[in-house]
């Protein structure tokens, strides 16, 4: 650059004028569950920009239906952090008992919070975060998925090999049914509930009416999480123990399309606009950015035991950091 001093002055002026960032290049927020921090990574350069301290043990996140707040669940601190999804500035803390996995209903009316360590599923009113109903469900409620009409939420009960269906209109448990060993990830797909069975190597296709398992799709040992690509064309399954730790299925037929070898315990996935997939690697304290076409991946160091990952292509990268 010909006149670096000019750039510096401009950056300083920009910073002094306001907190409006120089570019909205996009950023990724990673929940380092065993380090009580959130890593902010530049989407474009893959550089870690900063680490935000939280209180104890951040695991998962949910975006409010209006996109206004990003909720990060700090399980060990018993609180939800409401962040600006663009700057990741903290707006508010809401005390909530043991929030592990959480999600808003598609109609935006309720927030369901799974308390894995206390065997309870809580239904909160969105916005006010007032507890509407608590369901004691044994045991270890871990993941959840809604029907598109928001009438029902399905919760995997990791400790008792069951899936529970909760009617959110009448606020009662419809059924619980055995679906496989240690069910974890849950996904609504084409009128069926898919459940990844971590204690075995399959995804169960469950009838939402009664919990009957209609089919089992073999993926890999320790099937853990399910993610549908944003275009709905690919279904990704992360397998905890398999060398082929990522399985890709065709969402319509559930036929195997391909696998990827991604060591280090791939857990959650975020999809980038450029088609790349961002995985948290639980056991190696890293994030992998996978190019699905080539199978090549880039590695970014983050904090201890990264779990949830939130990607915002419009997130602000602060000017000072971006220019550094």
């Amino acid at each position: 650059m010909a006149r670096p001093w000019l750039v510096s002055v401009l950056c300083a002026a920009l910073l002094a004028a306001s907190y409006v960032p120089a570019r909205a290049a996009g950023a990724v927020l990673v929940m380092n569950s065993n380090e009580a921090t959130l890593s902010v990574i530049d989407l474009a350069t893959h550089r870690e920009l900063r680490r935000i301290p939280v209180l104890r043990e951040p695991h998962h996140w949910a975006l409010t239906p209006d996109g206004h707040d990003l909720l990060v669940a700090d399980t060990g601190a018993n609180e939800l952090l409401l962040l600006d999804p663009s700057s990741f500035e903290l707006r508010r803390r809401v005390p909530v008992a043991d929030p592990y996995q959480l999600g808003f209903s598609p109609d935006g009316k309720v927030l369901v919070v799974n308390g894995l360590a206390r065997g309870q599923v809580d239904v909160y009113e969105a916005g006010s975060y007032r507890l509407l109903k608590r369901f004691p469900l044994k045991s270890m409620p871990s993941h959840l998925a809604y029907t598109p009409d928001s009438s029902t939420v399905f919760v995997s009960l990791q400790g008792t090999d069951r899936l529970a269906a909760i009617d959110l209109r009448r606020m009662e448990v419809l059924w619980t049914a055995e679906v496989g060993k240690n069910p974890a990830g849950v996904l609504w797909l084409n009128g069926r509930v898919l459940v990844a069975n971590m204690g075995s190597d399959d995804v169960a296709v469950v009838n939402p009416a009664d919990g009957r398992v209609e089919r089992r799709i073999h993926t890999g040992k320790g099937a853990h999480q399910l993610f549908l690509s944003p275009d709905g064309k690919l279904l990704y399954v992360n397998n905890r123990l398999d060398v082929n730790s990522v399985t890709v299925l065709d969402p319509a037929s559930l036929n195997l399309l391909r696998t990827y070898r991604l060591p280090g315990g791939p857990d959650d996935i975020a999809f980038a606009p450029d088609g790349k997939l961002w995985f948290t690697l639980r056991f190696v304290n890293k994030v992998a950015v996978l190019d699905p076409a080539s199978g090549q991946y880039d590695i970014i160091g983050v904090g201890r035991s990264p779990h949830g990952i939130f990607l915002n292509p419009r997130a602000a990268v602060p000017a000072a950091v971006a220019s550094r």
């Binding site: 971590m198 320790g222 905890r240 190696v284 304290n285």
Partner: peptide
Amino acid sequence: DTLAGWLQEHALLPLLYALGLMQWE
């Protein structure tokens, strides 16, 4: 941290899986 991750990935998880105790992963 690397050693703990290695222990988890290559010793504890296979053990839990074999014992049918993956809920504790």
